[in-house]
């Protein structure tokens, strides 16, 4: 089995790009691959707890929390989060917060990198 690193830079609300990334991560985990997800820029908001579900918007908190419980590694950019007023105590349990070099190190050891840019 391989390792997939997915970099996500898109908004949690306002585009369906993160939904695609999370579905891809789920599929990879189901096939037994290791998955690292890096959340940067607006993508960091995916790692914030307390997301309220509305039918008009996709809701990813439960899916991503289950993914982490199942062994996926989800890590958010600390600087991007702090710049958005989103602090360590707001992070979903089990998620990581690191600097950007963590993403590059994850890419280093990945068999494939899928970098999904922002808006």
């Amino acid at each position: 089995m391989g390792k997939l690193t997915i970099g996500c830079f898109s908004s949690l609300v306002g585009s369906m790009t993160l939904d695609f990334a999370v579905k891809l991560a789920e599929a990879a985990r189901k096939k037994g691959h290791d998955v690292d997800m890096w959340l940067s820029g607006n993508g960091t908001m995916l790692s914030k707890k307390g997301q309220r579900s509305f039918k008009d918007y996709s809701s990813l908190e439960k899916t991503i929390t289950d993914l982490v419980a199942g062994g996926a590694n989800v890590t958010a950019c600390e600087a991007c989060a702090e710049a958005r007023g989103f602090h360590k105590e707001d992070l979903i349990s089990g998620f990581g917060r690191k600097s950007m070099d963590w993403y590059l190190a994850s890419c280093f050891s990945a068999d494939r990198v899928l970098h999904i840019g922002g808006e």
Partner: peptide, 12 residues
């Protein structure tokens, strides 16, 4: 900023 972060990636 991600490209420049390569300068400290060695720590990982």
């Amino acid at each position: 900023t991600h490209a420049i972060a390569s300068q400290t990636v060695e720590i990982h």
